[in-house]
Write a protein that binds this DNA or RNA. Structure first.
Length: 522
RNA sequence: GGCUCGGUAGCUCAGCUGGUUAGAGCGUGGGAUUCAUAACCCCAAGGUCGGGAGUUCAAGUCUCCCCCGAGCCA
């Protein structure tokens, strides 16, 4: 059983923005977690490259649509590389194989009798790539989300008979785990309750799209084509572009992680399309929230856009990942606040976690021959830090399973806090000034080092870089959360208390996390 | 206009089926300490729980009305 997870296929209308990075980072954490647990993971991301909007953007830039898409999708690829995203696929919907998958899928839908011709008349927003239901003003209506003029369309299109799937979709979204977070389910339920209407899946006079076989002059509606990208992406390098072949590589998806704005496409249209083609449905659709910045919507007009590439450059992977995953409940909207960003990074990562490791390691080295001290009592699972570690482990594993990154992050941090507290209680630096306390000190330092090791391992899915630096500092091997093939459950076993070897050499400590000094606004 | 979700310490938020002095983190102030990245640890101040009415022995927690914000659908 493959754990397949997807980000949306990002629309290449513009360069990547922070929202896309946020989704992708979260998926990366999830993918790493599943791999560490021993799952075979297929982590899919990609680019959605068709549609009128792209065509126009390219024209405006004096480029061919293909050249434009090549340029922007390269930026995505580069960004994900620099963020060290562990995606297994980066599908582009202009991939030649995708066209064949779409054709085969369409043939199945058509064979089900779900394709009919119809006349589509109405106001269209090119930015949304959507028809809007009768706007109030008959004259010059504009799109409420994009505040741009709508265009009147009157054309004969192919329609997908969504209305036939009313009951099945109702049943689907009633399933407890399907739409998450649960709070968003209402919205979709409401929409579906009003009655599903057939929707058009083709456009005429739009060259930049995949031609609909057997229907001269029609190209596929960009969403129809884009959603199928999830399936094309399943194909391995040498695979023939065959639908069944693709499906065998890891369908159905375990989860589609998306922004809340495209929930309807994923929770209603997409499942209906799959039902029509006789294919299994994804297990879960998770719609996360949006990011604002210092309380305001990010946008070009406000000039307050945070560029993910620059953010990475100035602050580093650990800092940004930590802030986004640890401070914002995944699912809710969140606000990026620079002060809080640096406060949390410095307090949690540099001070609490980094310093804990640093102080302990230097004591151990000083008094115990540059090695992990011998332990007796500290090995026991009833040691207070062993208990704290077990607790943290439970909460972290549970949180990550549920995509509750925040509670996972907090639980890992909590272990480090407990370790620091313990250290202050025991004050080994005072004990060392007395006679006959060496064994006690050895035990205490062992316990804290062990807590540090487990903290590092628990952080591995969230902050692979920091985790690695911590483990190296402890002289430990580093699990590879980006490797597709992971020895079953190794990581889980390493999380057991007491695995740290007494006598193992400790490298000379140096801070594993630098403080973030942001003198200027980002 | 209909529906949904929010409005709790300066900030971000927890508070399950109503029940002792309303919690956490950050920020702020103070103390302790020196192993450590001016770090860690401890303590404290700070809230008419959006407003009003009601139900109840008892409401942040239930009901109704109003105000504000976000979203979905018209």
């Amino acid at each position: 059983m493959t754990y397949t997870l997807t980000t949306p296929l990002y629309y290449v209308n513009d360069k990547p923005h922070l929202g896309s990075a946020y989704t992708t980072l979260a998926c990366d954490a999830l993918a790493r977690f599943q791999r560490l647990k021993g799952e075979r993971v297929l982590f899919i991301t990609g680019c959605d490259e068709h549609g009128q909007k792209i065509q126009r953007t390219a024209e405006a830039a004096g480029l061919s649509p293909q050249a434009h898409c090549d340029g922007v999708s390269a930026q995505y690829r580069e960004l994900w590389d620099r963020w060290q995203i562990s995606n297994n696929r980066l599908i582009r919907t202009t991939d030649p194989r995708h066209r064949q998958i779409v054709e085969q899928f369409f043939a199945r839908v058509e064979a089900s009798g779900d394709i009919v011709e119809g006349r589509q008349q109405g106001w269209y927003c090119v930015a949304c790539e959507e028809f809007k239901d009768d706007p109030h003003e008959a004259q010059d209506p504009e799109c409420p989300t994009h505040r741009r003029p709508l265009e009147w369309r009157d054309e004969v299109n192919l329609f997908f008979r969504l209305s036939r799937y009313q009951e099945q979709i109702e049943a689907l979204i009633a399933q407890p785990g399907f739409i998450q977070p649960a709070s968003r389910r209402n919205e979709v339920e409401n929409f579906v309750k009003q009655g599903l209407r057939d929707f058009s899946i083709s456009r005429v006079n739009l060259p930049w799209g995949i031609p609909v076989p057997g229907h001269e002059g029609h190209t596929f509606y960009v969403w129809f084509d884009a959603l199928l990208g999830y399936i094309t992406a399943l194909l391995e390098e040498g695979d023939a572009p065959d639908l069944d072949q693709a499906l065998s590589r890891g369908w159905p998806a375990s989860v589609h992680v998306i922004g809340k704005d495209i929930l309807r496409f994923h929770a209603v249209y997409w499942p209906a399309m799959l039902l029509s083609a006789g294919l299994p449905l994804p297990a879960k659709v998770f719609g996360h929230g949006f990011l604002t910045r210092e309380g305001q919507k990010m946008g070009k007009s406000l000039g307050n856009v945070l560029d993910p590439a620059q953010l990475l450059e100035r602050c580093g992977r650990d800092a940004v990942r930590w802030y986004l995953l640890r401070d914002i409940p995944f699912g809710d909207d969140g606000d990026f606040q620079q002060q809080r960003f640096s406060d949390l990074v410095n307090n949690d990562l540099a001070n609490t976690i980094g310093n804990m490791l640093n102080r302990t390691s230097s004591m151990a080295r000083r008094w115990f021959e540059n090695a992990v001290p011998p332990a007796s009592v500290a090995m026991g699972s009833d040691h207070q830090l062993a208990q704290a570690a077990a607790q943290a482990r439970t909460v972290v594993l549970d949180g990550l399973e549920q995509l509750e990154f925040r509670s996972a992050a907090e639980a890992a941090l909590q272990l480090a806090i407990a370790a620091n507290g313990f250290l202050n209680e025991q004050a080994p630096w005072s004990r060392m000034k007395q006679e006959g306390t060496r064994d006690q000190v050895a035990d205490d330092l062992y316990a804290v080092l062990e807590a540090a090791r487990i903290t590092a391992l628990l952080m591995a899915p969230l902050l692979p870089d920091l985790s690695e630096r911590m483990l190296l500092q402890l002289g430990q091997s580093v699990p590879d959360s980006s490797a597709t093939a992971q020895p079953d459950g190794t990581w889980l076993r390493q999380l057991e208390w007491g695995a740290l070897q007494s006598g193992a050499p400790l490298p000379e400590p140096s801070p594993v996390m630098a403080r973030l000094e942001l003198s200027e606004p980002l």
